[in-house]
Design a binder for these strands. Structure first.
Lengths: 195, 195
DNA sequence: AAGATAAGCGAATGTTCGTTCGTTTATAAT
DNA sequence: ATTATAAACGAACGAACATTCGCTTATCTT
């Protein structure tokens, strides 16, 4: 018998994301996807149950990757300022290294395709939660409802990322998020959080 | 001769937004839209050139409305803290009063349908820009690159709004953005910005 | 009241959609 | 080398798509 070709599945995934980013969800058809991946439409159905399954898997895998990447070199025990800055830098690197995945993720997250029922306690969330608890216990930062903490600690970062990516796809590139500017914003955020 | 019926155009707009929010851009077909608005498909083409024109107009009108609403009771001359808080409250009211428009706007903004070429200097942008300039001149806040200012001043707000709206469409509603919590976040933001 | 004009209709166009099916082909296991 | 198995194919399915066209109808102007 013949085995599934992981490489083929990867090409399908990649081309799907490219098409969605370029043309939106209505721009992704199974036949166009097959053509761009140089396979038969029916072959897609060997690797994915159907269109919806393909989209869901793409999203879940992308999200899992982002969470894993964000934890690179991270340990919940490190000092707060150092840890949050590492998070910012990790995320910045992962997003700018391959913006297509971020665009796709954002598009999916803001669409009705997302079913936000099960916010499962991932390894990632456990890590971050412990990290914050430690920092509060050490009195490095003030105790806050987690949503408010998240809004202050990451809201400005993602706003800057979006400015950066939006402008980089425009004619007159006016804003580029250098590490220096990121640091400037980061220090303002730290000013908020320090107890 | 017979005049165009503004009310009919409004129904088309409203139903289109409802369909997009519920089913995404691929869930909006001209025939389904016609049926839900109880008109003939061809009638839509009296009010909009085609599907793309409909979507673009919906977005531009929604954005214009948001900008207008955000300026209610606002004057660029008022003290900074008061002015920024008014902005937060205006936006909160407009979004929660009719979340569908916000969902649609976010979905469109994160899709490739958006063509971010012309960031025209709207009345809105002029107002905000002048407001910030005044505050800096009065030394109420520190001078910052406008993107960093925007990220700090509004990033946390929109992150909270998304938590609020996401959770309110879920089974176990865990987070609700009360005015008290919004104020708590706001004060942290002010701590960042104050010079 | 009459005429002119554009709103409004529903059927029809050709195209593209997601998915399936019968067949062929490659390859792991024997 | 043979066989069994599942990958891979391309044509084909009916359904749904955006848009148009010839016609009817409502209403503003005279």
């Amino acid at each position: 018998m013949r085995l599934k070709d992981d490489n083929k599945a990867q090409i399908i995934r990649r081309k799907a994301i490219e098409m969605i980013v370029k043309e939106g969800f209505d721009g992704l058809s199974m036949q166009k996807l097959a053509k761009s991946a140089k396979i038969s439409p029916s072959t897609i159905y060997i690797y994915f149950e159907n269109r919806e399954d393909l989209l869901n898997k793409l999203f879940m895998e992308t999200e899992a990757d982002f969470e894993k990447d964000a934890l690179r070199n991270f340990d919940p025990g490190i000092p707060f300022e150092e840890g949050l800055w590492l998070q910012w830098k990790n995320r910045y690197k992962n997003i700018t290294k391959d913006p297509l995945r971020f665009y796709f993720h954002e598009q999916f997250r803001n669409s009705p395709l997302i079913k936000h029922k099960d916010i499962k306690q991932t390894e990632f969330r456990k890590n971050i939660s412990q990290f914050v608890k430690n920092a509060v216990a050490r009195k490095e930062i003030a105790a806050l409802p987690q949503e408010i903490f998240w809004a202050i600690a990451y809201g400005p970062f993602y706003t800057l990322i979006k400015f950066h990516l939006d402008e980089s796809t425009m004619a007159g590139t006016k804003f580029s998020l250098t590490e220096q500017k990121m640091k400037q914003a980061f220090q303002l955020v730290m000013k908020s959080l320090k107890s």
